[in-house]
Amino acid sequence: MTRALVIRAVSRVIVPLSLLVVVGVRAWSHATLEPIQSELQDLFTLSLSLLIESLPFITLGISLSIIVQVFVPASWMQKWLPRGKFSRRAVVSLFGMVLPVCECGNVPLARGLMGRGFSVGDSVTFLLAAPIVNPVTIITTYQAFGFDDGILVTRIIAGYVIANLLGWLLSNHPEPEKMLTRRFVRDCEIPIGDQGMTKPQQIGSLFISESAALMPALILGALIAGVIQVGIPRETLISLGTDPVISVVALMALAFVISVCANVDAFYILPFAQIFLPGSIIAFLVVGPLIDIKMLSLLRTTYAPRTIGVISAVVGLSAFLLGMVINSVG
């Protein structure tokens, strides 16, 4: 009994103490080591940059997921949402307007929503629409492009339609569990509120399970994005950009590789608007928030590979066709 109490007391202080040790080791090593000054250092800087930029959004997403699962009764959410599948998804795809979370932060929230009874189709609709209908994304796209070439309006409509199209497609699957990873299905079998834990215990348990699922995926995604950024000369992608067809593919590939946040991708691509056709710019702005290296890695924590394949194919094909149509009529 006494031993158990000691172990419990030690376990309570070990984390704060460990973090203080981290701070101490960091201070010592920074005073001792010099940056490597090579492409290897750039790879690490790019990966860590992506991670530090995503980390607050992941934390916010996990926090909202915890709030949804611990404090919001399932019946309350079901009561306020339309019953019909189409109208329900139409409303779900607007959640992004009131939840200011970037695309990577939406993954834990989508997991939380499924934990509260949302279907796979609903969750994908939310996941794909939210970063584009997000007010911050709309404002930054407007600041970058105004209403020139209909880029802003096309982006919003395209994101909304693609999200609902995918939601509809996935909702027709006869066995929805097969669209998810086995581990996630297992985690969802018994809602956190039914596991005999107090609220703080539920919060702690959910934080651990969500960070355990998401952090390795986020780190590996950031690392792969860093490797590709350093390894593939940007010129290789951009040199393809003068052709109306290949330019669309080139900017879609660029969006996939750079994994930049949807809130600011419009500023990133703005200088390219001088040399690229509007269709390829729109393809970039549609693909980027929905599918990139970092997102694929995060989606893999929840959705089965085949589901991710369907999502990627529909998003890629839709964005390509949209870009082609705009280039041909513009």
Binding site: R12, I62, S63, Q201, S205
Partner: peptide, 14 residues
């Protein structure tokens, strides 16, 4: 917020 959640997870997880 994240550190707060880490502490809750450490102290209250059961």
């Amino acid at each position: 917020v994240g550190l707060g959640l880490v502490l809750i997870a450490t102290i209250k997880r059961n």
